[in-house]
Design a protein around this nucleic acid. Structure first.
Length: 796
DNA sequence: GCGGATCAC
DNA sequence: TATGGTGATCCGC
């Protein structure tokens, strides 16, 4: 309880400083007088709406912490001990997999012969083309992260480099002398002909060695010589460590963590958690409340964390505390959303808001079309003048990509928000529009095919029959032409010019523009009509379905799309049947079984626990000879490596494919390789389940490498616990956590206890989250490469 | 699927 | 002086 008080009694200004204040945690800031600067920030911001909102957010965080501490109070020593064993063994079982015999496996995780170097560019940070060229010499597949970071895997380069002569590793200072530049370009003849020049040359050059450190020095040297940019770098066995240690010698320095377990642990020992990518100020504060400040404390408190945080969170904490990160660089995954947003001075008229909304949709549509994307979900984001952010989303049946399509959805969302505060105006300072739920390549094909076949069949008749506008049109033209032909911002700009660039006149200008408006509610209605008209390209339309050629009663695009979807249903079925015949084994997808793919893939994923429990819902919803769940799992985890198994007949293929589809839908949809053996993530998701279902294979302890007689997951895990607790893990553990008797302690209810989240579910109001999102995967690139280094490396 | 929240860059 | 934009992810509902 003392802890709780401590947190909640923190003065509000302290709390806000945490949110707003200078973060001197980032390297390069240590020299500054933090307190002084924070004081200045405080003085400048006190009393503003922004500040008030920061206070509010901070109070929310404090409430979360308070609840967490209350929960912590209820935890008994017994529970903690139990959690200690369960979290550790569960973590290892899932993280490292227990399917294959892997002696010394865990140790290897920490010592892959891999060097990953993130280069953090300082100054103007942009990884220009030149730089890029230099980096590519060391790793042609290097991964740029944003504008000012890049990850390189220099493992291969290091091997090659061993045989390089000194000359190949010599680089020159780029002085102002033109002679030097000449030398830089072509030095060989000069060396031979003029010994004195050679001396000078040697004086002005530097030879780099063959170690990883030398390579990175060389890269940084070359970059600086060529672009004047300085960079700091970290050399480490995985991306997480590399990122963290590149931070250590900022600016313009480098640091290496050698691929040895002890070096990793030493590095992490006193490292503040805030230095870890993915742990932000909120997570830091929450962990601090638990007395956790360094990464090693993250490990020491793992039992507590497993009880207080979601599984994803505490497992990520454990990853961090053990220095586990990705060991290969993965190309970006597919984009998941695209958005655009804008901040402006207070905007409180519906007309302005619809106008801005349309502009955002227009911009977004352009961006979407550049990448050829169509999405099904449109999200409107609003920030009111008190800095409170709201998002409102709507998912439509047919995907959208054009300005009109997006606006059709967004304007409804906006309308709802405007209505919700009526008769008061909606006072906002930011609006954003996002499109997500993009069509997969498969879906695009279907769509394309349907449309193509439709057009080819000689039905190229415009399905929009335009009719002359009626009475509303005149109204529309007079009333809102300005807002469509000139953007909101253009008008504001013009108004500013008229008013001598005085921004304070913005509001009055707005009022002038709309001085003739009626009561606010009526106005909203009118605006809606206007925008509906706008949505119809300024002309009244009657939609005719391009499939059934029926005139549609509604003039809403959404309605039309819905209708077309229904009509196209037939076409779609036809197409998928054709695809059935074109099974491509490389693709490993279910597309030869369209019924299953289209209808049941998601279901199957959802029903996974049921499948495992033998209820087998998917089998009942599909007649594709999916006999029963046990059989399916047995097949996948059979002793023979999966990739060697050749499906013997179509039915087998069906089972295999469908199971893959169901178990690993995300990855299957992207890649064309066999993901079972390689994807640790899937392992994590399902490893324990495998054992429950497995009947004909032998469990081998991943630690001691001995075959286990039991088929029971519980017994098996117990064995692994014992092994783990005796061995590697115990090194790191404080003795109080592992009194000798606990290693024999009965471990029961493992899977249930695993969802420790249940225990910390907050039934009451306020903060919804009981766990935290702290994976390094916060950023998409870090994420994509995050979770599948270990098994893959091992098998390589 | 939605909405809020956190995080990185 | 007034407090950004974009994208991703997680959690609870």
């Amino acid at each position: 309880m003392d802890d709780t008080k401590k947190i909640c009694n923190t003065s509000s200004s302290d709390g806000v400083l945490l949110r707003m204040g200078l973060n001197d945690n980032k390297a390069g800031m240590q020299g500054l007088d933090k307190e002084k600067i924070n004081k200045i920030i405080m003085e400048a911001t006190k009393g503003s709406r922004f500040y008030e909102n920061e206070l509010k957010k901070d109070r929310q965080v404090n409430q979360r912490i308070e609840k967490m501490m209350q929960l912590k109070e209820k935890i008994t020593t017994q529970q903690l001990l139990k959690a200690q064993l369960q979290s550790t063994s569960n973590y290892h079982a899932r993280r490292f997999g227990v399917r294959a015999a892997m002696p010394g496996f865990i140790a290897k995780k920490l010592c892959p012969h891999l060097t990953i170097v993130p280069l953090n560019f300082e100054k103007y940070g942009k990884v220009s083309k030149e730089v890029r060229e230099i980096l590519a010499e060391y790793d042609p597949n290097f991964m740029p992260m944003g504008l000012d970071e890049a990850y390189l895997n220099i493992t291969e380069h290091l091997e090659e480099r061993l045989n390089w002569p000194e000359n190949k590793r010599r680089f020159f200072f780029n002085t102002e002398s033109t002679t030097e530049n000449v030398l830089f370009e072509d030095n060989t003849p000069l060396i031979d002909d003029h010994p004195e020049q050679r001396d000078q040359l040697v004086e002005n050059s530097v030879v780099f060695g063959t170690s990883a450190e030398e390579v990175v020095k060389e890269i940084r040297f070359r970059i600086e010589q060529k672009t004047q940019l300085t960079a700091s770098a970290g050399i480490a066995p995985n991306t997480l460590l590399a990122k963290m240690c590149s931070d250590r010698n900022k600016p313009n320095g480098q640091c290496r963590i050698v691929p040895e377990r002890q070096a990793v642990l030493d590095f992490l020992k006193d490292l503040p958690i805030r230095k870890v990518p993915g742990i932000g100020k909120v997570t830091e504060k929450m962990l601090k409340a638990l007395g956790i400040v360094t990464c090693s404390e993250l490990y020491q408190q793992r039992a507590l964390l497993s009880l207080l945080f979601s599984e994803a969170s505490w497992r990520n904490f454990l990853d961090i505390s053990l220095g586990l990160g990705s060991t290969h660089l993965e190309k970006d995954g597919e984009r998941k959303s695209m958005s655009t947003e804008r901040t402006f001075s207070e905007m409180n008229t519906a007309e302005d808001q619809y106008s801005v909304c349309r502009e955002l949709c227009r911009d977004l549509a352009q961006d979407l079309q550049k990448e050829g994307l169509k999405g099904k979900t449109v999200t409107l984001k609003l920030k009111n003048v008190n800095f409170e952010v709201k998002t409102r989303a709507s998912t439509v049946l047919s995907s959208v990509s054009t300005e009109e399509e997006i606006f059709a959805v967004a304007k409804d969302l906006l309308g709802t928000e405007i209505d919700s505060v009526a008769p008061h105006p909606l006072r906002i300072r930011l609006m954003g529009v996002r499109v997500s739920g993009f069509l997969s390549e498969e879906e695009k094909k279907y769509q394309q095919k349907s449309i193509t076949s439709f057009l080819k069949s000689g039905k190229e008749i415009g399905f929009l029959r335009l009719q002359p506008g009626k009475s509303n049109q005149e109204y529309f033209r007079n009333k809102s032409e300005a807002s469509t032909t000139r953007s909101f911002f253009d008008r504001k700009r013009a108004a500013r010019q008229l008013n001598g660039e005085n921004p304070s006149l913005n509001e009055s200008v707005g009022k002038q523009l709309f001085h003739d408006r009626k009561s606010s509610t009526n106005f909203v209605e009118e605006t809606k009509k206007v925008t509906d008209l706008q949505n119809s390209t300024n002309v009244c339309k009657i939609f005719t379905c391009p499939v059934c050629f029926e005139d549609q009663s509604s003039n809403s695009l959404e309605e039309l799309n819905r209708h077309i979807d229904v009509c196209l249903g037939g076409t779609l079925v036809k197409d998928t049947v054709e695809i059935t015949k074109n099974y491509d084994s490389k693709e490993n997808t279910c597309n030869f079984l369209p019924q299953f793919k289209n209808k049941n893939a998601d279901e199957c994923q959802k029903n996974k626990p049921d499948l495992l429990a033998g209820t087998d819902q998917s089998a009942s919803t599909s007649d594709n000879s999916i006999s029963n769940s046990t059989e399916k799992f047995t097949q996948i985890i059979s002793d023979k490596p999966h990739r060697e198994r050749q499906p013997s007949n179509l039915s087998d293929i069906a089972k295999n494919m469908c199971m893959k589809q169901c178990l690993f839908p995300k990855r299957i949809s992207r890649d064309s390789e066999d993901h079972f053996e390689k994807t640790e993530h899937t392992e994590e998701n399902s490893s324990s389940c495998f054992f429950e279902a497995k009947e004909d294979s032998v469990l081998v302890c991943p630690v001691c490498n001995s075959e286990q007689k039991t088929r029971s997951l519980v017994s098996f895990n117990r064995h692994v616990d014992v092994c783990l607790n005796k061995g590697l893990i115990q090194e790191l553990t404080e003795k109080k956590y592992f009194p000798t008797k606990t290693s024999n302690m009965e471990i029961s209810n493992r899977v249930g206890a695993l969802s420790g989240g249940q225990q910390c579910t907050n039934p009451s109001q306020g903060t919804k989250r009981s766990g935290l999102t702290t994976s390094q995967s916060a950023s998409k690139k870090a994420k994509s490469s995050n979770s599948k280094h270990t098994i893959e490396m091992f098998f390589k």
